[in-house]
Write a protein that binds this DNA or RNA. Structure first.
Lengths: 338, 338
DNA sequence: CCGCCTCAGGAATGCGCTTTCCTCGGATAG
DNA sequence: CTATCCGAGGAAAGCGCATTCCTGAGGCGG
């Protein structure tokens, strides 16, 4: 790997001159020397060592993004928004996947700090785990004290700027819709129980139930991992225990799609015999059959906002946005059969 | 930001000792000093500067991944495989999105080199652009000469290890299937014309046509951007020009899903009146209605292979794998109406 | 014609860390 | 009791670059 010194030697100038030419300093360099340097750079295919540069001038330019899994459409959308804003600011984005492992999440925050990123954006649900949350919050605060900026999406328990999807309210609106349609026996297929997203959404559902004079018994909640296949499994187990459910409320679209598949395999008509609803309104929600009734979260926009917060230099105290969730009625919901 | 020197001062030891404790050197340090150092690290929330470490010990640990767009399911799947292997090797992955902009692709390769990554994996179609290809190949070769390892997925024109999906053969098999079903008027909705993936797949289709004594006229090919919406648009324009097409062959699943949506809006039954096929077999292909007949590419596995190649230390010459594509018959295809 | 100012180029320092090399005290052997 | 060895801790060099400071040459005014 060619170094700046190599270039200097080849061009017959001092390292200082090469540095000035290569990294566009405002110091003037004669055209003669400049072209000699440029030629040497070309011949050597020289690329400055970013780490050395960073060490020497200490300007933090990269930003870190920590999500559960980019290949999950939910995070893919958020990441798209995150990236767009980062690119507009000329920032390099380092994406890390925790795969919902708290340990790994902690490790990645350290790693991102070590990489001297200017900002860290944490996207994805928090955990019901006080010790872990405290440890993570501590690390994040230390990072902030050292000049870093942090933004979180959907995690109220952490320091930094926050973009909060209205999980509880969104779940309320979909629960309200289902009860209003006349459903009485409603099953819920949920994500991991340790995630705050899961419990927040269930809380919204419970509030809707109460508003309609009903309750949501624990036996009608099946927990999965937010994945499509676990949605199918959860649906099967719920139906095995209570075949006469008239609605399945999924806590995200992937699980709802799994539910649709399970129901199709079982030969149960949707929404004729049973209603299915999702959450998030991923792009694919409108292309499955029947098209999913769900709650829309502007995922890309949420990502963009979070990155905007994180990159905002004049951050006077932590900012917070609550993102409203809008009910989207499509073909997968209807009144219960009589 | 606390530095190693700060820790040394606080613990009352030399920087060398701190370094030995913190980065787990094999040099022995007395328990007494070790615990003092650890305490200081804790109190100061010290995290070593990764750039300084990298500069000092020059071991490259991160790897770079350059894709068109992680939020595209195609790349999301590939990336998942890439990441899995990278994690197994204890590597940090830096993901960059070129958004199909050749300029940006070039810039990111430089950036990745500057970051001193141990390997660069390029995933996604190549371009029909000789000047660009030459420039990119040159940069990649320079990177290889300086000790970097490169692997590409689906880009024959570049140096390095290669994982090649059987685009031509896969397209042949789906074309063969469609002609075998008896279709005579077949429309194709394709990705950008400048991408080799597009032309390779069309070539396979053409070969299938020839094998059945048919041809694939240019007017029956509509180009889009591989996105869902452009699939819908392409379908509409194809059908507007030739309403009596009996099959739409999409060059990827996203466009096929768009076609399905357009056809539904047009009230044309699939596959009763018109057959639709996809390509890639993304997870969602089985959940749309009707389930997509498509060609299966083991995307995650391809990613895993590419990363394995890239990280293989004993790389004796470039390795190459061709990934077979398997026809998957589902509900969206059938014989043409008589 | 001389002194001063301007400006381009180079020498040198430091960023935060690892690692080699040196030092010094204690332990061991003679 | 002294010579030698061993091992733990510290001093210092160096990784590749940016940047400050210094130097020397040319241009200007007096």
């Amino acid at each position: 790997m060619a170094t700046l010194a190599d270039v200097a030697r080849r061009a017959g100038v001092s390292p200082a001159t090469v540095s000035r030419v290569v990294s566009g300093s405002d110091r003037r360099v004669t055209e003669e020397l400049r072209s000699r340097v440029l030629r040497a750079v070309e011949e050597l295919q020289y690329v400055p060592n970013a780490h050395a540069q960073l060490l020497a001038r200490a300007d933090r330019t990269a930003v870190g993004v920590l999500v559960h899994d980019v290949s999950d459409p939910y995070f893919a959308e958020i990441t798209r928004g995150l990236q767009r804003v980062a690119i507009e600011h000329g920032r390099l984005v380092i994406i890390c996947n925790s795969y919902r492992d708290p340990e790994r999440e902690l490790a990645y925050v350290e790693l991102l700090r070590a990489q001297q990123v200017a900002a860290i954006v944490l996207a994805g649900s928090g955990y019901h785990d006080a010790a872990f949350t405290k440890a993570l919050a501590g690390k994040l605060r230390a990072y902030e004290r050292s000049g870093g900026s942090v933004a979180v999406i959907g995690r109220h328990e952490l320091p930094g700027h926050a973009v909060m999807p209205a999980n509880e309210a969104g779940a309320f609106s979909i629960g309200d819709e289902v009860y209003r349609l006349g459903h009485r026996r409603v099953g819920v297929i949920a994500g991991p129980q340790v995630l705050t997203t899961t419990t927040d959404r269930i809380a919204g559902l419970r509030r809707a139930a109460r508003a309609h004079g009903r309750t949501l018994p624990a036996r009608r909640i099946a927990y999965g991992d937010f994945g499509r296949d676990s949605g199918a499994e959860a649906t099967e187990s719920l139906l095995a225990a209570e075949p006469d459910l008239t609605a399945i409320v999924a806590l995200n679209d992937s699980m709802a799609i799994g539910a649709l598949a399970a129901l199709r395999a079982l030969g149960r008509a949707v929404p004729g015999e049973i209603t299915v609803t999702g959450f998030d309104d991923m792009p694919i929600a409108q292309d499955v059959t029947p098209a999913l009734t769900t709650v829309r979260l502007p995922l890309e926009d949420m990502g963009a906002r979070a990155m905007t917060f994180a990159l905002d230099p004049r951050a006077t105290g932590p900012r917070a946005d609550t993102i409203p969730a809008a009910l989207v009625r499509r073909a997968s919901s209807g009144p219960p059969p009589n």
